[in-house]
Amino acid sequence: MNKVYIDGQSGTTGLEIVKRLQDRSDIKLLMIPEDKRKDVETRKEYLNSADLVFLCLPDKASVEAVSLITNSNVKVIDASTAHRTVWTYGFSELGYKDKIASSQYVANPGCHASGCISILYPLIQKGLVNQTEQFSFFSLTGYSGGGKNMIYQYENEKTIDLEAPRIYGLNQYHKHLPEIKKVCGLEKDVFLNPIVCDYYRGMAVSLNVEMDYEKIYLVLKDWYRDSTLIQVEKTDLGMISANTMAGLDCMKLIVSGNSKMCTITSLFDNLGKGACGAAIQNMNIMLGFEEVEGLNIE
């Protein structure tokens, strides 16, 4: 039975992965004692005794954790941004499944990046847009994406400014931008307007392009035709809610607009396909399980 260890199991992502894996009978979840979780020697022992390790840590701590792994048989999934432009990128629907399966080190995608890349990568690969263009994304997220401190603030110390959507990443140096540029092979930096709102979980990432929305729809529908976790729909009516996919590990792309202008919106859960669900999906691939084993898809 494969042994799995989560380094950083007390954080938002770590706790979510623990909750999802603790009842699985096809793995053995290694749980470090609470009073030893910051002890380097104990961590090193756990890191090297597992078949697969999740790193749910800040960037600097993730780099340190990797340096503690001396067992070449240990597979690693890093949920931080530390290795996203260096390691195998953990987004199987881009055609990366075989590479993920054969890799020792996999970088789990960022939540905003997952939305952006799910839209832009296929359009570039199919020649509908050019890698030399500059793109601008609008991204809504629930406050759980900000981690424990932000969750506590919204749920226990809410001030009037938290009742309205808040734009951040104002310097256009958001930590997810490098992976979007690298994975999509872009020549120019991407604009990203991330917005955190007063709801717990769920994301809506949108891109506007000057093109017939039917053409965009057909290309995206064909790209994801074999995907279990990503569906493509079209509509030019009603409204789109950012928490539509809350609690699920799948993603939905909504194509809307008219014959001249198109908006593509990627809907998913920031803790699902945007973090923990994607990490477990990658674990399944790396350990030889069914890709959707243990995922919430309905």
Rank of each mutant, 00 (worst) to 15 (best):
V4K: 00
Y5C: 07
Y5L: 07
S10F: 10
T13L: 01
G14D: 01
L15W: 04
L15D: 08
D23P: 00
R24Y: 06
R24V: 08
S25C: 14
S25P: 06
M31V: 15
P33V: 10
D35G: 08
V40G: 02
T42P: 03
R43A: 10
K44L: 02
K44Q: 05
L47N: 03
D51G: 01
L55K: 00
P58E: 13
V63D: 07
A65W: 05
V76E: 06
R84M: 10
V86C: 07
S92Q: 07
E93D: 14
Q104T: 11
G110L: 09
C111S: 15
C111T: 14
I117N: 09
I117P: 04
I117C: 10
V129P: 01
Q131T: 15
Q153S: 15
E155W: 11
N156D: 12
I160F: 13
G169N: 09
E179R: 00
G185F: 13
V196W: 07
D198K: 06
S206V: 04
E210F: 11
Y213Q: 00
E214W: 00
K215V: 07
Y217G: 01
Y217R: 02
D222F: 12
R225F: 15
D226G: 07
L229T: 04
K234P: 00
A242P: 06
T244E: 04
M245Y: 07
A246S: 05
A246E: 03
G247Y: 11
L248T: 15
K252P: 11
I254P: 01
I254Y: 02
G257N: 00
G257C: 00
T263W: 00
T263I: 03
D269M: 09
D269L: 05
D269C: 08
A275W: 02
Q281M: 13
N282V: 05
I285T: 02
E290F: 09
E291Q: 14
E293A: 15
G294Q: 14
N296V: 13
I297S: 07
